[in-house]
């Protein structure tokens, strides 16, 4: 008997390591239990789906369902088309305003604003701006809010005032 034969014989003795007599039946029983519970879970989902479908079918007639579905599709399509159109328009605005123009001397000392070129155009046309955002930006940059301070440069539409003006302390307020 060679060393190699001996080795194989020793390895084959591993077959005698067994889990016990009842293992297989217990194992099959446990597996069956697990399998049935998985099937039941699947059945519960299927049952829920079936009930939802039935409920929907009972609620509306097939013709109404078709009409509702068509309306939904039309609404979604309209909304999508409007959104696409709107985004095209938004995209076109910066292109129009992005024309570089010389900055007038009256504005060279003004703080930098995001809508500078729009502001310049409005100034050149001698019109008042109605952009509250500009007013607030100027205020937070440390400038006092000018109410038509510079002629035709920046103004406040109507009676609107900067927010900080409204936040003055109120004397005599006792709670």
């Amino acid at each position: 008997m060679s060393e190699f034969d001996n080795l194989q014989r020793i390895i084959r003795l591993k077959r005698f390591e067994t889990p016990g007599e009842d293992f297989v039946e217990d194992f099959v029983a446990r597996f069956r239990e697990r399998q049935r519970s998985e099937l039941l879970r699947q059945s519960a989902r299927g049952l829920l789906w079936e009930r939802m479908v039935t409920f929907w079918e009972d609620l509306v007639s097939p013709r109404m369902t078709m009409a509702a579905a068509t309306t939904c599709v039309a609404l979604v399509a309209t909304w999508g088309a409007l959104k696409i159109n709107g985004s095209h328009q938004d995209a076109s605005v910066p292109n129009v305003l992005a024309v570089t123009e010389p900055v007038p001397g009256t504005l060279s000392s003004q703080p930098s604003l995001a809508v500078q070129s729009e502001l310049i155009r409005e100034v050149e046309q001698g019109r008042q701006l109605e952009i509250e955002g500009i007013l607030l930006s100027r205020h937070f940059d440390g400038h006092e809010a000018p109410v038509a301070a510079a002629e035709g440069v920046v103004g406040v539409s109507g009676d609107a005032l900067p927010v900080s003006v409204e936040l003055l302390p109120i004397d005599g307020l006792i709670r």
């Binding site: 008997m1 001996n6 014989r9 084959r12 003795l13 005698f16 390591e17 889990p19 016990g20």
Partner: peptide
């Protein structure tokens, strides 16, 4: 480790190993 099956005592491989 699992218990060794009592049948190992009669296994020809086991006998050969333990006698040769």
């Amino acid at each position: 480790l699992d218990d060794v099956d009592s049948g190992i005592q009669n296994d020809p491989d086991f006998i050969k190993i333990t006698t040769a």
